[in-house]
């Protein structure tokens, strides 16, 4: 599935048969893919992880198993959605996996369509997050072009203060506030106050926020 953002499916399974089968399935359905035989092999891969895609993990593997790999990836800030496949899943394991943010937990032998559906969903999710992240990064770059005074004005604008109130707050004349406000609107490429407010909200999102705006409130679902 070609797209603006290149999506890639990463499979980690120690079983050669399963590797071959998954490779064939993904190839047949047009997915770019990378297949690894173990967690170690995957972690030591030089190639940068794709912007979008999905990680298909076998639970039972010698060395680091699926769940341990999940924890390790979380530590490393890896964000692709994870789909677990298991030869003999137990409820506690699947609950643990889901708690740690797995997208799905499939029991072998699984229906290929289910797997493909989950993979597609995961890719969609990662893509969406990927584009949000890109937007966020753009806004951040724009925000960085603002001067200190302009950032102050930006903050007060989105707080809903009038120019007069801003002038009073900052101890400057109202006219100057207007100039700053026009600059902010221009630099942030905002067409309306509403858009500016939305941008401010976006900038506060933890993934793209700088230290100043860090806030965990909306983390949840999109995190890996």
């Amino acid at each position: 599935m070609p797209d603006e953002i290149n999506a890639e499916v990463i499979v980690v399974d120690d079983d050669p048969s399963v590797q071959r089968a998954l490779n064939r399935l993904l190839m047949t359905n047009g997915f770019a893919r990378r297949i690894f035989g173990s967690a170690k092999e995957f972690l030591s891969d030089d190639k940068p992880s794709p912007a979008a895609g999905c990680l298909v993990l076998d639970v039972e593997m010698p060395g680091l198993d699926g769940l341990e790999l999940q924890a390790e990836l979380q530590k490393r800030g890896f964000r692709l959605p994870i789909v677990f496949i298991t030869g003999h899943g137990t409820v506690p394991i699947s609950v643990e996996a889901m708690k740690q943010g797995a997208l799905d937990f499939l029991q072998k032998p699984f229906d290929s369509r289910s797997l493909l559906d989950v993979i597609r969903k995961a890719i969609e999710q990662s893509r969406q997050r990927s584009s949000e992240e890109r937007e966020c990064r753009d806004l951040e770059l724009k925000f960085l072009t603002l001067s200190t005074r302009e950032r102050e004005v930006f903050r007060l604008i989105v707080k809903g203060l009038l120019n007069k109130q801003i002038a009073f707050e900052l101890g400057i004349v109202e006219k100057t506030v207007k100039v700053h406000r026009a600059r902010v609107m221009e630099k942030m490429q905002a067409n309306s106050l509403a858009e500016l407010i939305r941008m401010a909200e976006t900038l506060r999102l933890p993934p793209c926020s700088s230290a100043i705006f860090a806030s965990p409130t909306r983390a949840g679902r999109n995190q890996i």
Binding site: R20, A21, R24, L25, E60
Partner: peptide
């Protein structure tokens, strides 16, 4: 696990 592994591969192969 030992049985499900080849079964899974077979099913995936068949559907592919």
């Amino acid at each position: 696990h030992e049985i499900n592994q080849p079964l899974a591969a077979m099913r995936v192969n068949a559907e592919a």
